[in-house]
Write a protein that binds this DNA or RNA. Structure first.
Length: 894
DNA sequence: GCTCTGCCAAGAGGA
């Protein structure tokens, strides 16, 4: 039995005499049954009182196997010998977090804030780990070393290393492992698994073990340890994995640390041992210590989010009993505590940040941590929802039929499975996902990449084979982590000049344009002015590009102008698609000297020829990136270790209105000046939590400094009739067709004859009321009618390829998709593209309740995808229930 | 109640 619920009262720790002598106790009151039950007393005994000291009212408490007691006049529970006590179990602590927290709580925060920069020990460590995995998979040592070093070419090159010296060093580490594997330790009964992904719902832990040997965790270290015992924090790390295995009902009683820098010269004087391996026993005492440490960490994180003051400082922790004199982070630690004006045992360096900057940092830190909680909630669904619910939620492909496992290059595996019928999910080709035997938490799961997702078969590549019966979306904290780092770099490391404009202490400045400068763009004044603004900006420039106004063309022209002026340019955007589109425009204008940074899966096929392949000769790779005058990457990639080492004169950021403020900073941090391009009247950033992240830096700056912005006001996409509503509602009537031809376009231009259409569809904009009924997020009758409308257009001579259907919900998208060959998608996914004819299914009947309709910007996006004809399909009564939609209805019916 | 793109993640060192 497990007791679980929010804490409603916390007592002090006190000492009581028992028949076993003096013992410490701490009484809490918890409201069980998800907070619905009456509060009960929970008594924590002995060392669990440590967790009681960190508990606060409002935190969630979990106690496994409690004993009932009737102490006093009230029934309650106490911890038993078998009990585990977990605070905030929903907060998933990463194993490496526990490890650094044990070393020094402040180090945990420093790592989290500043990220681990590109440095040789870490890159080498990664290579050794990869080789270790290869050895376990039976790859030849020399082959593995050469291959993995080559794979790390780019990083090594940026660090200035030669492949041969790295190979030698890695080989020495790997040889130690190989020697150990061969010296009889590895017997026939040994079973190995490398890179084992673990999530523990009970203990609120997650992480990836380097390897499991006979079910016990093995951790690889590239350092040296000549002591008899493993280092304590290394033991903690291995113990974390043991604990997570215990949550699955497996009980490893040992852990192994492999210190691969140990050589024969380091023979242990006491034991005579020259093995790199140190085995230790994993007892309950150690495991309980792990849990208490994790609780301490989770409690600290809880306090950050629940501090009544939203601008309370970042709790960079305290040093506990760490000895700062040996700490490698000492300098960073002193700088950060100096900047944040916090106590630090190591001392402070530098002046504290101005108060507004500290407040900004705190506000966004908290916003990002809220976002992290939302990500954790996604993890929770992995075990709280049934497989069927996950599938219903579009977050998993279930009931797969395993069709075979093939070993591929590098000892990895290619898994195939048949998919049942019309499985819909968020999962897409190229995604990293959790492949499992049917149970991703308690069963066997492997993190892998979906390489193919066809009509009836799915293919995944993983490190180890697994019976492929289910694939789940794997929530990742990487964007939160990288946003935090970007925030740190911008505020704690950012230069003063940049911060003065970001914090409104100075207005952005522009240099005077040379009087005799030729226009950059001849036939479009606003576009020309936008390029000029960007070129002349000494701080930043903003380009507001409504739908169809030639935003991408302007970006390409701007980049060329900047390169002509001798500048090194970073081209960034939120999505891979936007990066590739901008790159395409740049190449269309004859500019080819670009490098695209991104994964093979992320980068579009026709841009692969300029994609930076990381594998190769270090010197060459570093040159390819470092010498490129234009580098293009997503903002997420800009936050990567490699990109954080790059410096640019100007960062041009597309889709800036879809980026959170920290997300934008990841790109702008890398450059002296920046140009943001976007449209804050279209969709805002996608975030899970509701907070400061919902407003983009683009929007904040354009509202604060309209003079730094230029709005592109001529659109090349929509007919006059189609654009008029959006122009009036969203752009103050300033959006105009670029030419009479654009304004006057119609279906006749496609060779279709409006006379062949039913009268209700003959207009440039039409409204159809199918009299359907909304059922959840779908409306079947409306879906049928939408398909009918598409057919009518096709019958009148419109190519089905030229028709797009937009619906607000994925359920309706699927419903319509079954009935037509036209492209059907959600509004959000249609942003950035257009079609000759657009049909919009509104789904709602009766009223327009729901968040999807609240943000009118979504409607702006939907309406402005159409070029020549637009038909709205929906319930007139629902539309008339809200003024904005009523105006929309009037316009459509006109 | 809804929309959803990025990212493999974890990787070192010493008294």
């Amino acid at each position: 039995m497990t007791l679980r619920g929010p804490i409603v009262d916390v007592g002090d720790v006190r000492t009581v005499s028992t028949q076993y002598g003096d013992r410490e106790v701490c009484e809490l009151r918890v409201r069980p049954d998800e907070g619905a039950g009456d509060p009960v007393r929970v008594t924590l005994w002995g060392k669990w009182t440590h967790t009681g000291e960190h508990a606060e009212v409002g935190m969630e408490l979990l106690v496994t196997d409690p004993e009932e007691d009737d102490f006093g006049d009230e029934a309650g529970y106490t911890t038993s010998e078998e009990s585990w006590v977990v605070l905030e179990p929903d907060f998933l602590v990463d194993v490496t977090g526990v490890r650094s927290w044990v070393q020094c709580p402040r180090m945990y925060y420093l790592n989290k804030l500043s990220g681990i920069p590109l440095n040789y020990p870490v890159v080498k460590g990664t290579v050794v780990h990869e080789v270790f995995g290869d050895l376990l998979r039976g790859v030849d040592l020399d082959e593995a070393v050469a291959d993995r070093v080559e794979e790390a070419g780019l990083e090594l090159g940026l660090l200035g290393y030669e492949p041969t010296e790295v190979e030698d060093e890695v080989r020495r580490n790997a040889a130690a492992v190989e020697g150990w594997l061969e010296q009889g330790t590895l017997t026939e009964t040994d079973t190995w698994r490398s890179e084992y992904t673990l999530i523990s719902p009970t203990f609120g832990l997650k992480g990836r073990a380097d390897a499991l040997r006979r079910g016990a965790p093995v951790e690889l270290k590239t350092g040296k340890n000549t002591k008899r015992e493993p280092r304590f924090h290394d033991k903690m790390q291995a113990a974390c994995y043991a604990l997570m295995l215990a949550d699955r009902g497996e009980t490893p009683d040992t852990g192994t640390l492999l210190y691969t820098k140990n050589t024969a010269l380091d023979r242990n004087e006491e034991t005579g041992d020259l093995s790199p391996a140190k085995e230790f026993s994993v007892g309950t005492g150690l495991l309980k210590f792990v849990v208490r440490t994790r609780n301490e960490l989770a409690a600290m994180e809880w306090r950050t989010l629940n501090d009544p003051d939203p601008e309370a400082g970042i709790p960079t922790g305290y040093e506990a009993d760490a000895k700062c004199q040996y700490c490698f982070e000492q300098d960073t630690c002193m700088v950060v505590s100096g900047r944040l004006n916090q106590e630090s045992k190591a001392g402070q360096i530098g002046e504290p940040l101005p108060e507004e900057e500290r407040a900004y940092l705190s506000r966004f830190y908290r916003a990002l941590e809220e976002e992290r909680r939302e990500t954790h909630a996604e993890y929770r669904k992995l075990w709280e929802q049934t497989a069927a619910e996950r599938a219903e939620d579009d977050r998993a492909l279930i009931d797969l039929d395993p069709r075979g496992q093939t070993e591929i290059e590098g000892g990895r595996w290619r898994l195939r499975a048949g998919t049942p019928g019309d499985a819909v999910s968020k999962l897409r080709e190229g995604d990293v996902a959790l492949a499992s035997d049917g149970d991703p938490v308690a069963g066997h799961a492997e993190l892998g990449r979906i390489t193919s997702l066809g009509e009836d078969e799915v293919v995944v590549e993983t490190d180890e084979p697994v019976e492929l019966r289910r694939i789940d979306v794997y929530p990742s904290e990487i964007s939160v982590d990288r946003s935090l780092t970007a925030l740190h770099d911008a505020v704690l490391k950012g230069d003063e000049r940049r911060k003065d404009v970001l914090f409104g202490r100075r207005d952005p400045e522009f240099s005077a344009a040379p009087a005799d400068r030729d226009p950059f763009i001849d036939n479009n004044e606003a576009q020309d002015e936008a390029v000029a603004r960007a070129v002349d900006a000494e701080d930043f420039a903003l380009v507001h590009g409504p739908p169809g106004t030639g935003k991408t063309y302007t970006i390409a022209r701007t980049i060329r102008a900047l390169v002509d002026a001798g500048e090194r340019v970073l081209l960034a955007a939120f999505t891979n698609r936007a990066v590739d589109n901008a790159l395409e425009a740049l190449r269309d204008q004859g500019f080819e000297d670009v490098v695209r940074v991104g994964s093979q899966q992320g980068v579009r096929g026709d841009m692969q020829d300029v994609r930076l392949v990381r594998r190769g000769d270090p010197g060459e790779k570093a040159g390819e990136l470092g010498d490129a005058p234009v580098v293009a990457a997503t903002t997420a990639a800009c936050g990567s270790r490699v990109m954080r080492e790059q410096a640019f004169d100007v960062a041009v950021v597309d889709e800036a209105s879809q980026l959170t403020e920290p997300g934008t900073l990841a790109a702008t941090n890398l450059a002296e000046r920046f140009v943001l391009v976007g449209d804050h009247k279209q969709l805002p950033p996608v975030v899970r939590a509701e907070n400061d992240l919902q407003r983009s830096l683009f929007q904040r700056l354009i509202e604060d400094h309209p003079e730094a912005g230029v709005m592109l006001d001529r659109q090349y996409r929509m007919s006059q009739r189609i654009q008029s509503f959006a122009s009036a509602e969203f752009y103050d009537g300033d959006l105009r067709p670029a030419t009479p031809a654009v304004a006057g376009q119609s279906l006749a231009d496609l060779g279709a004859d409006a006379a062949d259409l039913p009268p209700a569809l003959r207009g440039g904009v039409n409204f159809v009321d199918p009299d359907g009924d909304r059922d959840g997020n779908r409306n079947v009758r409306e879906a049928e009618r939408v398909a009918g409308v598409v057919d009518a257009y096709v019958d009148a001579g419109v190519d089905v390829e030229d028709i797009g259907v937009i619906a607000p919900f994925r359920a309706q998208v699927a419903e319509i998709g079954r009935r037509t060959d036209a492209t059907v998608d959600t509004v959000d996914r249609f942003q950035g593209s257009s079609k000759e004819v657009i049909v919009i299914s509104l789904v709602a009947t009766g009223d327009l309740d729901g968040p999807i309709f609240e943000d009118h910007r979504r409607m702006n996006v939907a309406l402005t995808r159409a070029k020549k004809a637009l038909t709205l399909v929906g319930d007139a009564e629902a539309l008339a229930s809200e003024p904005f939609y009523e105006r929309l209805l009037d316009w459509a019916r006109r």
